[in-house]
Amino acid sequence: MFRLQGSKVLAVDMTGDSVKAKNGSMVAYDGQMAFKKLTGGGEGLRGMVTRRLTGEQMTLMEVRGQGTCWFADRASEINLVNLQGDKLYVESSNLLATDGGLRTGTTFTGLRGASQGNGLFTTTIEGHGQAAIMSDGPAVVLRVSAQYPLTVDPGAYIAHQGNLRQSFQSGVTFRTLLGEGGGEAFQIRFEGDGLVYVQPSERNTIAGDV
């Protein structure tokens, strides 16, 4: 059971089950815990090779035991996500922990990743359970539905879940090159049905200053 203690510490109550968490993110525990490094994020040899090839590196550990374990990373804000059989797409650098039963994988994101400087691939989490994702400042959760598509700055995007199509919009025109760009030259547009998580801060991207 995941719960937040403050907004920057994740507490997980465990009764013999396990969680996957970012390597080294444990700050304290109470009870009996065993920590095991998961080579290749527990995705087997194929997952390991995929992650190596795609650059979507992720070092996870498996924590199993009885009691409570607390996780935190660089005082980042933590956001809980409930998954009921749907898929969460998140940058590996923003993933803190997931339930042991959730499957993680890698997927192609297209141009969005490139404009963020995060590579062309992203991490997926699938199954039933909870995940904890990190953001710079508390994330705002925005619902996308058929009548309300959403446009997001690539630098502020952290994750999305549900049945969403994303398309990359580029507003680069000759004005950008003349130095009169609109400042929001790269955008991702989400359509469909689902949730998008954005953080109140922008990673340094090429897009950020155009």
């Binding site: 700055d153 507003g171 609109g182």
Partner: peptide, 17 residues
């Protein structure tokens, strides 16, 4: 520049000039 993080609807961003 660059302070918009997300929007719903139709919004254009134009540089001054």
């Amino acid at each position: 520049k660059g302070k918009m993080i997300a929007y719903y609807g139709t919004i254009d961003f134009n540089g001054i000039g």
